[in-house]
Write a protein that binds this DNA or RNA. Structure first.
Lengths: 230, 230
DNA sequence: AAACTTGGATTGTTGAACAATCGGTGCCTG
DNA sequence: CAGGCACCGATTGTTCAACAATCCAAGTTT
């Protein structure tokens, strides 16, 4: 069953792409919804309703759940259901443990190509523009892209996937703290300095600065999580 | 869940999976079989036969396939079937890209505890004993354990999982080259030196040595892959 | 009011069914 | 005799309907 699905009142969803595997397609739909904040941390994903809404069988939806659970975007409670992951303090610590390892490693030992540097410059430019415009989502996007490109310097698809999933979990953290103040304003200029060090070949310095940066960011997030409780 | 496993031989009778995650149980069974070399790279995993042998439905087995495909232990060719992964040169390069990042990072920035050091010593001791006895599988095991413990110093379950999966892929590489000469003899003493540097707090030195070690190991594997073709 | 029982809803798993696709076989054509 | 083409069986992709197991909440009993 590829395109058709014309048998049900296709809900507000134009997505009817040629899905290689229906399960993967469903996973991508849910991934996107979660990433956009349409499904907030803690929300329940009921099999019956979702299967009907996506026009896939429960079995196929279940396959998608397995994928998302592997990515820790979703939590599976046996016999209770599937819920959007709700990162707690320990999750935040784990996120930063990962980032504190692979990001500085990529800075130190990754391949520093001209295109990569150009890309970093462009992202920094966008981040500074967003900062000047007070565009918080824009700064958040640029920030995530920058750190993704840093890890991409390692040249490893696997590590880039790990980073992508980690950043997806970071987004869940931010959705949990949507009422907390802005975290990104202070980081745009910091990122600019980081790229400058890289361009000048001061790799050890950049790695150390990034590790310090990640330490303070983690502490700040944990502090706000404490303040805003739960 | 799924009990203490311990149930590979008898196919039919005893295998009534306890109600937990039958899919995860099936995945673990296949993971073990592959890791032991009972299923060699390139072997086909037919849905029908395997489902019958494991006493699970095709749907459940398919869930297990999804898990293993995510782990890159298994390759899924659309409409053709599922096969045990057969790592090629590019896979080897990717494996070492990963290891060259996360292992030295763990050495540099991980937590160097006394129990971890004791564990490393014990593993080195076993590796040297295996070397003296000419016990190649023993050396291979000790080697993998050592590098697993190194990454565990990072304190991150996620990174340890990445490393576990990477080592599982390494095992597939070795199964592909079972006719090639022994790779491990030269590494036991190298690992001993590595642990000594760590114990003396010479972290940068240990990280650099490990990166060099990984470079030569990769080159050696790639060379043998070329020599023995395909 | 606390503990127990019951009922309804949801998940976990299965088996069968059907469409889609692949690999090979053998025929036909040139 | 070589090459291409259509058919055929086998396997995969997906769905459906059913049932057992489990959980949650409400109602009942003491």
């Amino acid at each position: 069953m590829t395109e058709p699905s014309a048998r049900t009142p296709a809900p507000a969803h134009t997505a009817r792409a040629a899905h290689a595997h229906t399960g993967a397609w469903a996973a991508q739909v849910l991934r996107t919804r979660i990433s956009r904040g349409e499904l907030l941390p803690g929300a329940k994903l009921a099999e019956q309703g979702l299967a009907a809404e996506l026009c896939v069988s429960r079995n196929t939806l279940r396959e998608a759940f397995g994928t998302l659970a592997d990515e820790l975007i979703v939590e599976r409670l046996p016999n209770r259901g599937v819920f959007v992951a709700k990162p707690d303090a320990e999750d935040i610590r784990e996120i930063y443990r990962i980032r504190r390892m692979i990001e500085p490693a990529a800075l130190l030992w990754g391949e520093l190509t001209a295109p990569a540097l150009a890309e970093l410059d462009e992202i920094v430019r966008r981040a500074l523009a967003a900062l000047a415009a007070g565009d918080v989502p824009g700064m958040a996007d640029a920030n995530q892209q920058l750190h993704g490109v840093i890890v991409a310097m390692a040249g490893s698809p696997t590590l880039s996937t790990v980073m992508d999933r980690t950043l997806a979990r970071m987004r869940l953290v931010f959705y949990r703290m949507s009422d907390a103040p802005d975290f990104h304003s202070g980081y745009a200029e910091h990122n600019r300095d980081l790229v400058r060090m890289l361009r000048e070949g001061r790799r050890e310095e950049a790695a150390a600065a990034l590790r310090a940066y990640l330490d303070t960011a983690e502490a700040e997030l944990l502090g706000h999580l404490d303040r805003w409780g739960l």
